[in-house]
Write a protein that binds this DNA or RNA. Sequence first.
DNA 1: CACAAATTAGGTATTTATACCTATTGAGGA
DNA 2: TCCTCAATAGGTATAAATACCTAATTTGTG
Lengths: 218, 218
Amino acid sequence: MMTPDRDISILLADDHTLMRQILKDALNREPGIRVTADTDNGRKAVELAENYAPDIIILDINMPGINGIETAKRLIKDNPKTKILALSMHCEPYYIHGMIHAGSSGFLIKTCPFSELLTAVKTIVGGDRYLCLETRKALAASPSEKQDADPSIARLTDRETEILKHIAEGLTSLEISKTLYISKRTVDIHRANIMRKLNINTIAGLTLFAVREKVIAV
Amino acid sequence: MMTPDRDISILLADDHTLMRQILKDALNREPGIRVTADTDNGRKAVELAENYAPDIIILDINMPGINGIETAKRLIKDNPKTKILALSMHCEPYYIHGMIHAGSSGFLIKTCPFSELLTAVKTIVGGDRYLCLETRKALAASPSEKQDADPSIARLTDRETEILKHIAEGLTSLEISKTLYISKRTVDIHRANIMRKLNINTIAGLTLFAVREKVIAV
DNA sequence: CACAAATTAGGTATTTATACCTATTGAGGA
DNA sequence: TCCTCAATAGGTATAAATACCTAATTTGTG
């Protein structure tokens, strides 16, 4: 990789101040890298990105109250030249596909070493994509990238969301059918359609999805 | 606070390697502080604590598959002189009470600044307790004893907690049995025991419980 | 040692979930 | 008007979960 003629400028967005501060320091100690701004939420990240026009935004997608995918979409829309490296605690295919589709150039989980973060930053600024090993594994294990990446297919209908909510609350198909005055068969069909759209195959998986998407409260 | 006659020795337990590495470096740059060992899981933390006898253990309580409270109890039991500073992503009253009750001397959430971590470490090694502002607020807002009154998760055995984690991750009994090299029957029995103890009768319910109790991350 | 608890495993039965199939009705857009 | 999609419902079949039963082995503790 050739040496750039100026420092790589980074915008750091992570709500965990402890992490953000020491990560900022660690990155600033690296030659050729400069963290020019940092914030603890996605809204400010959008503002700061316009003001500082960083080469790359390291974006924690688990910030509370803010949808990481939506933040990434807005950042890319407002700053087409800026690259995004998504940082996540876990490698869920749904989020990986979502972030990639939103325009993110990389995806790292926080169990990766610091050296891999540096590699990812340099790779992405160099114009390539970077996915960590666990992310690549997760993608390989989830064959239906098209379905997950396509928001029009992944989006649930109102009725399906309602069914999902009841499923995640622990109701059986029969109980849901009685609650909604429809046939158990219909509930089963809805559940199957939800699972097909989300590429999730278990009740536990649906429940986790519902929690993540705030269909139900924890 | 008087200056100690030797460095404060720290054992660092956090499954997020990125965080652990840069936090280790950041702490080691502080005069009078030395991270003597670090690990990504609670089991190893118990082993390392015996070998290194650190002054203080900085323990991430959100490590997957491991119950933070149980880990703290074991650490305290095996190393009565060692202090524990619990690090968490959120300030859940149940966990704060649980960790304090288990013998933890401090509780910080990761949105705290690095300076507060240093303050907490020094305060705790000095023999006092340290709770961050958000933690104190959370405790003040929640009637204290009610949270302790129903430590449902504490009634689960280590094995049951492990089974619960796999269930909530969406694995079937057969898959869990293959993962743990035990019979599907045994997994079914564990699940039944968990449901009986928790008075929860569905997979979705177990998953929600696991999320609430942070057996698995959202 | 004696006792309690945890972990392991099997039997049998019923209920539920999951995966395929087809099909009707109504709403809304090209 | 034609076409797609959402919502509805049924059939059939297998896999999984759930609810009861018993019991051996290990582990730790008084």
